[in-house]
Design a protein around this nucleic acid. Structure first.
Lengths: 296, 296
DNA sequence: TCAATAGTGTCTTTGAGACAATATGAC
DNA sequence: GTCATATTGTCTCAAAGACACTATTGA
């Protein structure tokens, strides 16, 4: 195989013409999620949780002073996956967080400078492990609360199928800025075919198409949390079952019944001998993730 | 926003430096699936079904004369998604098949010519609509039967977690060539963290890393067929429930019970007045996909 | 009649969801 | 005791799975 490839170098060089075509820059953009406690005014109450995403304030053009996802260009010596690991480490100092490739975006014109194709990744990190060195390398980095809500839904029958249009509001907020992006998801059934598409109706103040990337990541997280163990990546090593439930509730944006939730996750966790204390109410047992031989 | 971006052109140009970095070529590779009847020797028996993938024989280096996924480079005027639509049309003549982005691969050295990052897509087409104009543009194109099977499984407990190693065999076969690729999937649980990885143990005769792309696509198809309506994209407009069940069985590589299957899909299909005839056994009612307002 | 597939009924088991009841520590 | 949360038990309902039975065609 090797030898036959080197045999006719003329042809090899001919196919090398591909390198004369125009090439895009390829970037990775990191949607880094964590769960943070909301400052709770009422004493001796459980703190509420928020799903948060890490954004940085851009120092240079384009979109100077706008908030954007952390990321960077893929180097010739690394794969996009490796670039994502590197960017995550540079941004948060974490070497081994959960990381998942999401989608590769490349609408012409998504970057006003030049042709850039971007591969988005989702990272899940445990907030207790990270100390946001704000201004790490002279950039502002902040956690923004994320809330994606369905605002409107329209169903229509067409000649040979049907259309479902859903309007969503994606709200990102920190102490410095609150910005809303309005998106429309269109699910079309035409004959046997079903297609799905999400468009930006009203862009917010985020740089590039990063609001859409965040929206996509929220969807993925919501969908996968039910049938995977993704949630544990957002937990500290020891946690109470109520804390775990709060993480599910925050991500799914709905309330769950305690008894049912515990049944559902009972074989994914192991109890420990430790308990919480000093909270003004009954102590709660601490659990760890099960390290057993079940996989999901 | 626009004005502030044009304000300090000096800075704009500075960030434009990104274009001086080395850039990769970006390609799309198409995993085009269909279901084909296996030639059935026994008369008046239902034909068995095979999951098939479209491969083309490469005319040029590298991997000259090896079989490969159809695909091509993304142009500056289009997104990867649009490139996938274009490539699918060029290869099959189909304008509106089901198409889904799968994964973006970019291991350095995956293409011996130069730095190429490739975005893989899965397409599902109804074999009854396609007439493989073999040698369309002077390339051989063939359907290869796909079979991915678990060969071995090892579970091990580690200090702070566990490891599951699964060996798979991916068999691709047509009249011209049968080739096997052996893959190993490693699922590691370490503390709260769960990671998954698939490596090639023994490469087959396919070009580039295309065997891994096919393996990934088969996994995706198997996972999604349970909770989506993907299967209908592989069906003709009118079909019997047994044919639909065969498609599920072929993809999942297991047998299903008729009564249960019918209950599961009864609200996804609509009956018609037509029946099959002349098969040597009881006629079967033909169904269409439901065009109702349910979505999945 | 038989071979082969089409189509339906029902029992059991499993799991999701709803709700109720009891327990415990700080104050 | 009260407040707020922790923890467990049980009932119902729906879906999944297993299995058995009847129906219809061509030969």
């Amino acid at each position: 195989m090797q030898s036959s490839r080197e045999q006719t170098e003329a042809e090899f060089l001919k196919s090398y013409d591909a390198s004369r075509y125009e090439r895009p820059s390829v970037a990775v953009d990191m949607v880094i999620f964590t769960i943070l406690d909301r400052p709770q005014p009422n004493y001796r109450k459980l703190p509420e949780k928020d799903l948060c995403v890490l954004l940085i304030k851009r120092g240079g053009h384009p979109f100077k002073d706008h908030w954007a996802l952390p990321g960077g260009f893929v180097q010739p010596t690394e794969s996009p996956d490796q670039a994502a690991v590197r960017e995550l480490a540079e941004e948060t100092g974490l070497e081994n967080a959960y990381l998942e490739q999401l989608y590769t975006w490349g609408d012409p014109g998504r970057d006003p400078r030049t042709w850039v194709i971007s591969c988005s990744y989702m990272a899940l990190i445990d907030a207790s492990r990270i100390k946001l060195a704000a201004g790490d390398d002279a950039v502002d980095a902040r956690w923004f609360r994320v809330s994606k809500k369905l605002k409107q839904e329209k169903r229509k029958l067409t000649r040979n199928g049907s259309v479902l249009k859903q309007k969503y509001s994606l709200l990102l907020s920190s102490e410095e800025l609150t910005t809303e992006t309005q998106l429309e998801k269109t699910i079309t059934k035409h004959g046997r075919r079903q297609t799905e598409e999400e468009q930006i109706l009203v862009p917010g103040e985020l740089a590039f198409d990063h609001a859409r990337m965040i929206s996509y990541a929220v969807d993925r997280l919501r969908n996968k949390i039910d049938y995977t163990d993704l949630a544990f990546n957002l937990m500290p090593e020891y946690f109470t079952l109520t804390q775990l439930q709060q993480v599910y509730e925050t991500i799914l944006d709905c309330e769950l019944l305690k008894a049912n939730f515990r049944r559902k996750i009972e074989n994914k966790v192991v109890e420990t001998d430790s308990f919480t204390a000093g909270d003004g109410y009954r102590p709660s047992q601490l659990f760890k993730r099960s390290v057993g031989l079940q996989y999901s």
